[in-house]
Design a protein around this nucleic acid. Sequence first.
DNA 1: CTGAAAGCGCTTACAG
DNA 2: CTGAAAGCGCTTACAG
Lengths: 339, 339
Amino acid sequence: MARITLDDVSRAAGVSRSTASLVLRGSPKIPAATAERVRKVMADLGYVYNRSAANLRQSRSMTLGLIVTEIINPYFAELAMAADEVAHEAAYTIFIGYSHDEADRQHELMTSMIERQVDGFILLPAPDSDPEKIASLVAAAKTPTVTVARRIEGLDYVGSDNVAGGELLGRHLAAIGCRTVAFLGGLQASSTTERSEGLARSLAARGLEFWNDAEQRAHITPAGGVQATAALLDRGRLPDAVVAYNDIVALGIYEELRRRELRPGEDMAVASFDDTRFAATQAPPLTSVAGFPDEIGRRAAGRLLQLLDDGEDGPLNDLVPPKLRLRSSTVAWRPRGSR
Amino acid sequence: MARITLDDVSRAAGVSRSTASLVLRGSPKIPAATAERVRKVMADLGYVYNRSAANLRQSRSMTLGLIVTEIINPYFAELAMAADEVAHEAAYTIFIGYSHDEADRQHELMTSMIERQVDGFILLPAPDSDPEKIASLVAAAKTPTVTVARRIEGLDYVGSDNVAGGELLGRHLAAIGCRTVAFLGGLQASSTTERSEGLARSLAARGLEFWNDAEQRAHITPAGGVQATAALLDRGRLPDAVVAYNDIVALGIYEELRRRELRPGEDMAVASFDDTRFAATQAPPLTSVAGFPDEIGRRAAGRLLQLLDDGEDGPLNDLVPPKLRLRSSTVAWRPRGSR
DNA sequence: CTGAAAGCGCTTACAG
DNA sequence: CTGAAAGCGCTTACAG
């Protein structure tokens, strides 16, 4: 049995194909009785609407492409789900792709989605993305694109105010009496730069030392945290506090500190960014700067839908204000002399 | 400027549209020189392949639908990513949808994806799914469907061997000297039933008491764990061990035990299922039954691709064997008399 | 090896 | 209010 098309429906209902098509979209031009009859036939025949055919005709797909690094990191997962929520309400469906932070794979995913006619992109760019390449890709297909969490020159951006987050943390660490602070983990990306910039600025203003060598950069995994912590401690001087690029990295920091018989939160204050579920459920609970990925996802999707409705508009730079969540990993720490 | 089509390309290259189409797919029928020329024209003109148009013609979309509860739970996230990996290698792209464990939303998502002509589904069914409704939906559109992690009568299934997992845990708890074991959290779904069945069986065989009242069921969140633990402890008797439906629920169990000044792992053994990142990074580290969601995702996608290639085949029931990861939340526990 | 033609399943002016 | 026709951008036999 071949699939049922609008043609079959209209024939069975004794109307033209255009009428059937209009019924499908609830056009007021069709008398209620006719519409009713057509709908009944559709149900009886088991008609399934082929939106792809409609899309071809209308040159839009009601489909959005979402590209993220991965989703094991709950920050990315929350962002993805929130974006989907907004898209879903507007009748869009989402293609998802995982770049694993590899620019080549990201490029491949975008190309594949463009071939599938996505109407727009939400892109969390790989750290080594080539801005020109991405710009030319989305320009060729005229696909509106909003970047999230990491910035790419020239594209709309929605993300945490990482500089402000770094400042919140710097001020707090100074207030509890830290003198030296090291920043651990994270790759070469705008988010890393911004977080360390906010830290550096607020620490400098209060006369604290800030350690941020290249060897302290590491992948955003527990293993990356282990590695960066080891690199730091192998230099022989202990800072009063370490700040993790995010909670996932902090898991590795706790692990490596314990391996060296240092108690996180007591021998060294530890703080972090993102405030995912991992932060509050650590022992000791981890001070973290909440970044509200759900809000970022929602705003990015909203912006994209607006772009799709109204066409181009100036470039957007939308920063979500962070919040500092104080927990015992810093609050319970005491300066060495006073212990 | 209108978009460039194959027509434009073939005209500019001085060949017919069929030739251009054949070049696109690297047909050996076209002389290398011609192919080269056509490809150059495509590049010069900035041609973008419209796979949707091709899909319409070919009646397939090279698209798979993946429906999961959500992806904040890393178990679901890993499953989703692994399935994507396999699909991606076979040139499929994935539509993702989040049911939030609501059957209505799941139905809506499936309908929307069917309209978009997905070639197949990987479905992690909502606990209150209506099997008939799902069966008729996918049958109407002839969309092959593989269920994962939770079973639906009559559909292919790939999941953990939860019964075996429950038995592993029951044997271990008996071995460390537990007399009474309570199972906490989880909704009415096959995974819950299977886990408790494995536990019940192995505990009964060793003469242990198994507590598993309806009020111990709860949502798969930390809050669900809190609630189920409270309901259990309010009855006034403490079990030797509690087993969480999964690591997420266990977070809430730890929390509620501490609120009542009970030390998890000391005053009560605690164990769990899934062995996500949350298990090993708890304090105390949490004994958990690893369920290998990545393997489940891979196998489910593989099965779906095979179905797409070879057509129907007997129903599948593919169980991934679990592994018990022992950690101090059970290993450090001692029976009351011997403390 | 290449070209003309039909068709995938819709939507959309345009007549009537 | 309804119908006939063209077209979205491809692919695929079928001639030549």
